[in-house]
Design a protein around this nucleic acid. Sequence first.
DNA 1: TACAATTATCTAGTATACTAACAATTTTGG
DNA 2: CCAAAATTGTTAGTATACTAGATAATTGTA
Lengths: 136, 136
Amino acid sequence: MIHYEHVILFILAKANQRVHGIFKGHLQPFGLTPLQGLILHALYEEDGLIAGEIGRRLQLDSATLSGVLERMTEAGWIAKQADSDDRRLVHINLTVKALSLRDEFLKKIEAVNNAVMASFRIEERLLLERMLKDLK
Amino acid sequence: MIHYEHVILFILAKANQRVHGIFKGHLQPFGLTPLQGLILHALYEEDGLIAGEIGRRLQLDSATLSGVLERMTEAGWIAKQADSDDRRLVHINLTVKALSLRDEFLKKIEAVNNAVMASFRIEERLLLERMLKDLK
DNA sequence: TACAATTATCTAGTATACTAACAATTTTGG
DNA sequence: CCAAAATTGTTAGTATACTAGATAATTGTA
């Protein structure tokens, strides 16, 4: 019979736990949680996204997103603005605070990512990425 | 600058989300959550473990473990028993219900694991396991 | 136009996971 | 021997993540 240490559920959950914890530690000085960091990252790539579009790109449940966006608004990273044509839509805009920390944030993310992936060469990193996407 | 799609935090979290969801679906008929399944799995390998030892083996926080063990007790999978020598210790014993479902459970876990890993050969599975353990 | 179907977002409730603080017990060191 | 330290486990509070369902706005159709 298979041992729990070799069940992908376990292996993956623990790897995720570790990596999440590492990013958590490095994002704490910004006052950001890892998920908030990812949302910020997506908005740095394209400001003013609709809430639902952020959810699609980051594969986030709408229920999860609501709470995170609310906390990021309170923390002064983003501001919500209703769309003038379709008032169901909520645009998420970066604040001046967020824009001023853009370079520092992106540099930090890249550094942490490199640290976590330090033991792998470029080809191995791509292989890992491909394998993780093939899990389903 | 790095894109969020290539940040290991994102890739790993989404792979974990998918695999967690798959196991969740297949364990639902048992009335088990994925984490409860892992704890049960560990107890099938060694019954009567101390709560703290389960936490060490599964790398679980004691706070997380307390709640899960309480729910598993309520659901009739386990029973707690204080150690007679050291009353701080709590032994976790499997119930008759748990023992009677052992084979069915383990067979299901192995099948789901194989399904999730279906696109990989044995060497690739070992490689993925090694890479995930090297993330730190 | 009226009304049903669709879409976008949010709320409520449950389950991990963490930090911090606490209670109970046992061990240790003077 | 006994006070301080260490260990085990629990509780409280916060942040994802899911399901289910509610709400509000828009679109499609008869």
